[in-house]
Design a protein around this nucleic acid. Structure first.
Lengths: 241, 241
DNA sequence: AAGTGGTCTAGACCACGTC
DNA sequence: ACGTGGTCTAGACCACTTC
């Protein structure tokens, strides 16, 4: 069979990688389902088994696939859950994951402040959309979020009736913007009046203050997010290797 | 030339990987120096160029090597600095790295508490070594550390006259223990009397409290470290992708 | 025994950097 | 023109899983 791919433009194995990733996103295979063998995929796509292998190895390295010797290659069951928790690190002190919900959104459109411009690399008088919301864990208000995005990059975001729990999936599906990496800066802070009102904690109690810049795949600054978290019953947990 | 390596036991490319990593650690090549070409290494070591490539690719992926098409493979200039900063994340709000120093060590040997046992997976009545010290950034006390390790695993650590700034390099060189990963839990806390004495901050000021468990390559728990950090002028900075 | 991924080899050609 | 790493192929054999 002729190759489905155009050689020369981009490496074949990257095209195979992209193709397989699309198929997973499109739901061609269920979560946990086995893919065709390397040989079969190579014949289907008109490339050698080694090329398929390189693509699969990379997909396995980013957690989308799971490979088991003697059995096959599988769509990782975590590949959906991962996207939810990729950048969400609050969990119980034991290390168990918790699922947050969002409430009390307040969306406004305004001119960028000096801080907005600095964090998002915007020009003077640029417009931004600001979202303030509280995130709940087990019905308790735990995180007070302020989210600021360039209005031109996400035009119409402020017109939406509802916003999903996971904004990054909306950026992807509605605006074609993929968050590739984030830079976070964490500090300890004391709760002020606004924190007290939103999180029901006493003024002066300790809060974890997180400044996050989210970058698109191409490195553009997409979002500045300030999270003020009550860490009385949850912790920011991270594993480094 | 015969292979330097024993086939069958571990994959050849892993043996090549280990060998090259040793050479870098031993200083066979200077930082930034070019390695022999893939072909040359393959002939030296008695394996094929493809096997060397796989080892070099993995070393590049963990940041030890840097590969440039048309030029060669180089020892990454950051590979030494990286080890210092691999698990140290305090920096200036701008994102610039700062180098900490350590002072005022107090080393004691005692029986493990319930908390020690839980964090390090120890049996009852096990002995631990506890190190308390303050870390300075630009002469200012910023972090108050409490470090707890199993006394049997690092026997004689409490007898040493001096301790280096980077304990993990000591664990490696003196005890043959390599830290492979760490699990960190971050909270916001308020300064108590001990914090005030060590860090010269008012009681009740906000501190970033970090609980870290360090794991050896084989997954054993090697160290529990509590860091209480003043984040008035520095932040815990991390990049995720 | 048959099928899967894992390792290893050998050789071809391409893209990049240097001379 | 030459040497480097980057890509791609084809084929061999091994280790693991299932039947």
């Amino acid at each position: 069979m002729d190759s489905k791919f155009t050689p020369g433009v981009r490496p074949l194995y990257q095209q195979v990688y992209d193709y397989l990733l699309e198929q997973v996103a499109a739901g061609t295979w269920k979560l946990g389902a086995a893919l065709p063998s390397e040989q079969a995929l190579g014949q289907q796509l008109g490339v050698s088994q080694g090329t398929v292998r390189k693509a699969l190895d990379e997909l396995a390295s980013i957690g989308v696939m799971e490979r088991r010797q003697g059995k096959g290659t599988f769509v990782a069951v975590n590949s959906e859950e991962r996207s939810l928790f990729r950048f969400f690190h609050l969990c119980t002190p034991g290390g168990d994951r918790v699922t947050p919900s969002a409430t009390g959104e307040k969306v406004t459109r305004r001119t960028a402040t000096a801080a907005d411009m600095a964090h998002l690399g915007l020009a003077k008088n640029a417009k931004v959309i600001e979202i303030k919301r509280v995130r709940l864990i087990e019905q308790q208000p735990i995180i007070f979020e302020t989210i600021i995005v360039p209005a031109t990059m996400l035009a119409g975001l402020d017109k939406r009736k509802t916003l999903p729990n996971s904004l990054y999936s909306l950026y992807h599906s509605a605006f074609g913007i993929n968050i590739g990496s984030v830079q976070e800066e964490l500090r300890a802070a004391l709760a002020d009046k606004q924190d007290r009102d939103r999180l029901s904690v006493p003024i002066g109690s300790p809060l974890l203050h997180i400044d996050r810049i989210a970058f698109g795949i191409d490195g553009t600054r997409v979002e500045w997010r300030i999270s003020r978290c009550s860490t009385a019953h949850h912790v920011y947990s991270i594993e480094l290797s």
